[in-house]
Design a protein around this nucleic acid. Structure first.
Lengths: 318, 318
DNA sequence: AAAGAATCCGGGCAATTGCTCGGTATGTGG
DNA sequence: CCACATACCGAGCAATTGCCCGGATTCTTT
């Protein structure tokens, strides 16, 4: 009735995958899985759960909800955008980042599926990190991933949200991280960094990118830049005094969506999102605190694409 | 706390999609969904279940199990195949067709994702039908779907397993069904059908197909051709006497994988799978009763690709 | 080798889910 | 307008699942 596993040395992940397959595809109960695999019911449940947390299971909804489609169309029209995707609302207290991640991943996937080599520029932040987490494994050796922003934190650790590395790992793509601190206080050092040949290559690629994905940060007290310790309370105050309401890849902009020239902007280690003529620049952001910065960024045409959540669009259009 | 649906006229499917989104992506409980949507818990459960049965939810396993990969490699080597995918075993009593369907769909998806126009030929049968059912919605207006086999049953109804129509519907692709009975007893009528210009177009396309997907039928008492009433017990006996062990798109072959010339073969309304030089011809079949026909088909190189199940490969290689 | 830490395992329980059943609204044909 | 058929709906119950806990096992460290 039951078969002992032919290979006793099957890895734990394999076993989890097998359990998940039986559960989600086969529709077996955990008890049946346990019998099938010759383990206890509890172990079966742990395997299924493990498969889930390890991201082995991807769930996709085939149906676009009419209400969201309408919002997409309206947003596209209002701000003259090329790409818009709106994720249906999740519960009241839910993290909006979580809601948009799978949708953002599917948008990125469309570019990744292109057989023509694409250059894809990436910012950082929780939203992008979540998006990458939702990506399936695809072989993209013909594409290039470029980072827009330095990956060295003030505390010296290499990664804040190491978006590029994770993505490159999943996609098996060439990747060009930016070997640069996020902020460089000394203009002299900054200049010398920028003079590095590797950096010039990255800058060149980013300027030719076919598509750029960026998060959008607010500049309130909960500003990600500040909360994560990249800028000081002083910096934050200063930028706000200049009218900053949001930032993209650490570049602050005002309520009209104009990038600011400031003490901070002269310290940023990174590149402004741009890309070649006609390229996509897609913002990934959702949540009440993103409404003001998003509205500004859209008004100033810093973005021509957006992935966000139902609640956020409603607020944006209100 | 709860919001009434902004649009009271949201369709039932939309509501189901919303419930499923909350359940699978948001991880809410059915009670929470009920509150969120302002319906009873039972309705929430029905919506989620409906989303599932309507195929709005697609589950995909990101991890290829080592054991299956090994089997694929071995099968590929043994029969010199271009494409092999092995689905992990489901429970003892499970329908193997169900197990291979999602895997087959992902193989087909790879062709569908090609931006170059593809001509895809399709046979019929339960396995293909299940595969199509698992396809996601993709826009494939640049591809062409061609049927290899007549779609008019002996009882006059238009569809046995109307694979092409379903596929074309999901993919929005040009499709060329074969307006032909599955079997034509009168040679005269057969000739005149084949002379139809529409049919010549279909034949031309099939002969140039980039990839062909076919089921593989056994020729035992449980032969699909017989069970579904396309051939008589008499026909079956006759073919078996000639050595038939299996059939592909109604074309019987013997244990060496050679197509048979017979009374039946002269009545078949359809085309042999072929396609252009170097094209893919992929069999979709699993289950103990398919082992013998599959072994023959592979030996005779009637196929150069296969999607099947773990148990089936083990039997094939034994 | 022994102590300690960490992990793993299965029992048991509470929450969640799937499903059946009887009742009610809706609609349809006479 | 009534009778009948159909679909929908909520209550209640049994099965399934998620998770906590004490005990066992393995690995590390001294």
């Amino acid at each position: 009735m039951k078969k002992p596993l032919s290979d006793p040395e099957e890895s734990a992940t394999d076993e989890a995958a097998r359990a998940a397959w039986l559960y989600y595809v086969g529709g077996l109960t955990q008890d049946q899985i346990a019998t099938e695999l010759g383990v206890s019911r509890q172990r079966a449940q742990r395997l299924v759960s493990k498969a889930m947390t390890e991201g082995l299971i991807h769930v996709r909804l085939e149906h676009r909800i009419a209400g969201c489609l309408a919002l997409e169309a309206e947003l596209k029209r209002r701000f003259d955008l090329k790409t818009v995707r709106v994720a249906p609302r999740l519960g009241e207290g839910a993290d909006p980042t979580h809601a948009i991640a799978p949708v953002a991943a599917s948008v990125m996937e469309r570019f990744l599926r292109q057989p023509e080599p694409q250059t894809i520029a990436l910012g950082t932040g929780r939203a992008l990190r979540a998006m990458v987490e939702e990506l399936p494994k695809i072989n993209c050796e013909h594409h290039k991933l470029v980072s827009l922003i330095g990956n060295i934190s003030p505390d010296g650790t290499a990664s804040n949200y190491d978006v590029i590395m994770r993505a490159a790992d999943k996609l098996n793509a060439r990747h060009y991280p930016m070997p640069l601190p996020v902020l460089l206080d000394d203009p002299e050092i900054r200049r010398s960094f920028y003079a590095l040949p590797q950096l010039k290559i990255v800058a060149l690629l980013a300027a030719e990118a076919d598509v750029t994905f960026v998060g959008v940060g607010q500049m309130t007290e909960s500003a990600p830049l500040y909360v994560d310790g990249f800028i000081s309370a002083e910096d934050l105050r200063e930028e706000r005094a200049l009218g900053a309401v949001g930032e993209i890849a650490s570049w602050c902009f005002d309520s009209e969506g104009r990038y600011l020239e400031s003490r901070l902007s002269r310290r940023v280690g990174g590149l402004r999102p741009g890309g070649r003529e006609g390229a996509h620049t897609i913002g990934i952001a959702a949540g009440p605190e993103k409404v003001t910065p998003l509205r500004a960024a859209l008004k100033g045409r810093l973005l021509n694409g957006l992935v966000t959540s139902e609640e956020t669009v409603e607020a944006l259009l209100a």
